[in-house]
Design a protein around this nucleic acid. Structure first.
Length: 111
DNA sequence: ATTCTGACGTGGG
DNA sequence: CCCCACGCCAGAA
């Protein structure tokens, strides 16, 4: 099933998002070398939804808006998870998004 | 094979 | 900042 290289990469990058940090679909897509396939990242997140190791709630759109919150189990589970990590979210909008933003192409360091 | 959709992004106004 | 139109590509019907 969806265990393509693309999905796998997305999962790995998502897993490396630090606690209390967030990133965007485009950032991950760009890191994977497919800046045009940002949507596919979201699709990959859907598949990763099966994998608890992938914190999909830390991935938002470029505006820092929790566009995918509707895809989570509850109605505001995504926001709860983020706030639980210290991320301030107001009306689906992450506050200080620029500060909390974690760019894999710049800040991703390998173990 | 064709058509539509979508957890997006960019550019122009 | 907002709004609008277009591009992109994988999957479902």
């Amino acid at each position: 099933m969806a265990d393509t290289g693309f999905f796998k990469k997305v999962h790995q990058v998502a897993q490396r998002i630090p606690y209390g940090r967030v990133t965007s679909y485009g950032a991950i897509a760009s890191y994977l070398g497919a800046p045009k396939s940002a949507r596919m990242v979201g699709w990959a997140m859907n598949a990763s939804h099966n994998n608890e190791d992938v914190p999909a709630h830390r991935v938002v759109n470029r505006k820092g808006l929790l566009t995918g919150k509707h895809h989570f189990d509850g109605t505001n589970l995504m926001q709860q998870l983020l706030e639980s990590e210290g991320v301030v979210v107001v009306d689906l909008q992450i506050q200080d998004f620029k500060t909390l933003f974690w760019d894999p192409t710049k800040e991703l360091n390998l173990d």
